[in-house]
Computed example of a mutant assay.
Amino acid sequence: MKKGILLVNLGSPDSPSPKDVKKYLGEFLMDKRVIDVPLWARTLLVKGIILNTRPKQSAAAYKKIWWDEGSPLIVLSEKLQDKVQEKLEMPVALAMRYGSMTIKKGFQELVDKGCTEIKTIPLYPQFAMATTETIDVKVDELVSEHFPGVKITRTPAFYHREDYIKVLSKSIAEKLEGLDYEHILFSYHGVPERHIRKSDITNGNCKMDGKCCFKKGSKQHEFCYRHQCEITTVNVAKALGMKNGTYSTSFQSRLGFDPWLQPYTDRTIERLGKAGIKKMAIVTPAFVSDCLETLEEIAMEGEELFHEVGGKDFTVIPCLNDREDFAQVIANIAEEWTPVKKSLTV
């Protein structure tokens, strides 16, 4: 059996035009694991309201961060794929959950190269219903309908891997070297609180009070996004020797009126600035590739908000992107499934 690796990231519009953004948002937001309400309600919300109001605004935001080569997320993911491929003898393909670079195309590319066993690696360090789970479900559908002879191996969340924490910590330390920052904010993509409850395999053990996130041995931690974000922060803070009170965790990009994970990033930035913090840094560990949420929402809107409330220096730490040592982490994940060409230390 020939093996292959399929890296899967979120996706992007084909261009920053309102037409392409509308098409992309339609596919993304109609996913029942992204907006998890009954179909009639999701259709009314997405097609009746959001797609008639948001595409033009989102297109303007995409234009601010669009590169000559294309979407930053796509370009950076392709560069990461190339570097991972250099470390592996087996084929490495890249796909997106939404957009024109479909998972089906990624599978077909590997199958055409003779692969009958594929390991999927979602490029999300933390598990979430709206990210990792929707990839897994889509993969199952495609295998059943189009690739019945392909054996799939899944990759669990890698937020707690020592090599990942080491690389993430190193990337932060390099950016902050020589800077006299007062606070570092770990901003993760937000999800509705009900997503956490739906992913709770213990059927009610999660109390949404923040306490069970740090309880050792809890079974629901394997699928608890909030726990995995909190522990990512804790492990990085420990690796960098950060003192309590000099760092915190927040959640960004909420949508609608239902309660989402708190504290919210924009309100936290505002609170820190009003509290007298003049120099802060921000890192976004839920994303491995810089994208709209990091380049526009954080690096532009976040900095503007910080300055409005009296802040001075706002340092944005890049995502891991196509760092050589991060590519090695992904290769290490593959190595645990099948040997790689080289064994390098991070």
Rank of each mutant, 00 (worst) to 15 (best):
M1T: 10
M1L: 15
K2M: 05
K3N: 14
G4D: 02
I5F: 11
L6V: 03
L7T: 00
V8P: 03
V8R: 05
N9C: 03
G11V: 09
D14A: 06
S15M: 06
S15E: 06
P16M: 05
K19Y: 09
V21I: 02
V21G: 03
Y24D: 02
L25R: 06
F28G: 03
L29E: 05
M30P: 01
K32D: 06
K32N: 10
V34P: 05
V34M: 02
L39W: 14
L39P: 05
K47V: 13
G48Y: 06
N52P: 04
K56F: 10
Q57N: 03
A60P: 01
Y62N: 00
K63E: 11
K64W: 05
K64T: 00
I65P: 03
G70R: 04
S77H: 00
K79A: 07
K79S: 02
D82T: 11
V84I: 12
Q85M: 09
Q85Y: 06
K87M: 12
E89Y: 10
M90T: 14
A93D: 00
L94Q: 02
L94P: 05
R97N: 01
G99A: 08
S100Y: 07
K104I: 04
G106C: 04
G106A: 00
F107D: 04
F107G: 02
E109Y: 09
L110F: 08
L110P: 02
V111Q: 03
G114P: 08
K119R: 15
I121G: 07
P122T: 08
P122A: 08
P125Y: 06
A128D: 04
E133M: 15
D136C: 09
D140V: 03
D140R: 11
S144F: 15
H146V: 11
F147E: 01
R154T: 13
A157Q: 02
L168W: 09
K170Q: 13
A173P: 01
K175A: 07
L176V: 12
L179K: 15
E182H: 13
E182P: 10
L185C: 04
Y188D: 01
Y188C: 02
H195N: 15
I196M: 13
K198H: 09
D200Q: 12
I201M: 12
N205F: 14
D209E: 14
K211P: 03
K219S: 11
H221F: 00
H221P: 06
H221W: 00
H221S: 04
H227W: 11
H227K: 14
C229A: 09
A237W: 09
A237P: 05
K238Q: 12
G241V: 12
K243E: 09
G245F: 14
T249K: 03
S253G: 02
F257Y: 11
P259A: 07
L261R: 13
T265Y: 07
T265G: 04
R267P: 07
R271P: 06
L272G: 09
K274M: 14
K274C: 05
I277Q: 01
K279M: 11
A281W: 07
I282A: 09
F287M: 07
L295G: 06
E297S: 12
A299K: 12
M300G: 09
E304L: 12
F306P: 09
E308H: 13
E308A: 15
E308K: 15
V309K: 13
G310C: 14
G311L: 01
G311N: 02
P318K: 00
L320R: 03
N321K: 11
D322V: 03
E324I: 08
N332Y: 06
I333N: 07
A334T: 08
E335S: 15
T338Q: 15
V346D: 09
